[in-house]
Amino acid sequence: MSQGGLLVVRGLSVAFKTQKGTVQAIDGIDLDLNENETLAIVGESGCGKSVLGHAIMRLLDDIAVVRGSVRFREKEVYEMDTTALLNLRGGLISLVPQSPSSSFNPVITIGKQIEELIEKAGKEKGNGARKRALEYLSLAGFSEPELIHKSYPHRLSGGMCERALIAMALSVEPELVIADEPTKGLDALSRKNILGLLHKLAKDASMIMITHDLKAAETCERLAVMYSGEIVEEGPTGIVLNHPRHVYTKGLIDAQPSRGMTPIKGRHNLFSHNAEGCRFKERCDAASNECNNHPMLSKVEDYRKVRCCHA
C-alpha cells in the first residue's frame, strides 16, 4: 500500500439522515489509487458506488454526514478551502456524470458549457477555450464538432451526450477521472466505442469507473466490488473475475447476460447495516454461525482482499 499514491481514502463513511431513518450509504471505505491506474467499482444498484464517487469530490449535499478521510495528492479534501476545492473539482478530478441526457443545462449550448469549464480550470481563455472545446469534441469522435459546439443539449441523443460529457471532463486534462456508469443504456457497439474513447482520452490520467457492467470493468486494471456500502472484494481485475473469492462477486458474475443472467437471490437492504455480522448473510448460501461476526476486508493473496469469514 503506497502512501504516496494519488488518492488515499481511509474509513470513509457517508450517512444520510432522512425521514425514514438514517441511510448509511457507504461505510468504512479504504481505497488507494496510484497515478495512471484504472479502477472499476462494481456492485448492485444502491450499494453506494455513486455516493463514494461524489464523496471523493466532496460533492455531497448538506444532509450527508461524512466521516473518514480523502487525501488527494496528500491533501485532505475535507480540509480544503473553497478555492482549492473548486480547483479540485473539474480541474484535478473530473466527473463524467451518470445520466448523460440530464447532465447538460438545457438552455446553454454544449460548446459554452465545455468552455466555461476550460476557462474555470484556467486552461485557456476566449478563443483558445473554444479551440480546445472543438478539439476535444472531435477527439470524442464528432465529425462536425462546430455543429455540436453550437447545439443545445436537447438536440443530442443519449450516446452523443455521453461523448460530449467525456470530451468536457477530459478537456481540462484532469489527474483523476471518475466516470459514473459511462456505458449505461448503450448498445454493445456504442459501449465498446465509449470505453475505447474514455481510455484513449484518459490515457494520462487515473480513472475510477463506476459500473454495473463487468465487461466495462474488465477494461480497468483493478476491480473493487461493493456491497451495501462496503468493499467486499478487491484486486486485479482479471484475477478477481476469473477466481472470485466472495460469494457476492460470484453472484455478480453469474448474473451477467453471458453467464445466463442468474440473479442473486433476495434484495439488499440498506437498513440492515446496523445488524451484527456479515451484511450479505441473508442472501448467502455459504452462511454459517461465524458469519454473525462482521468480517474484515483482509488480504488473502498479494494485491487481493476479501471480506468473508470463509474466504
Binding site: 460533492l59 443545462n105 466555461e116 480550470a121
Partner: peptide, 27 residues
C-alpha cells in the same frame, strides 16, 4: 435538477451557477 449538480461537480462557483445556470432557466 441534475445539471446543477453537474455544474457543481465542474467546480463552478456558486455565483456562476446561480447567475448563469439557474437564472437562465428561470427566464
Amino acid at each position: 435538477e441534475y445539471f446543477i449538480f453537474v455544474a457543481r461537480a465542474k467546480g463552478l462557483s456558486n455565483r456562476v451557477i446561480e447567475l448563469q445556470h439557474v437564472i437562465r432557466n428561470v427566464l
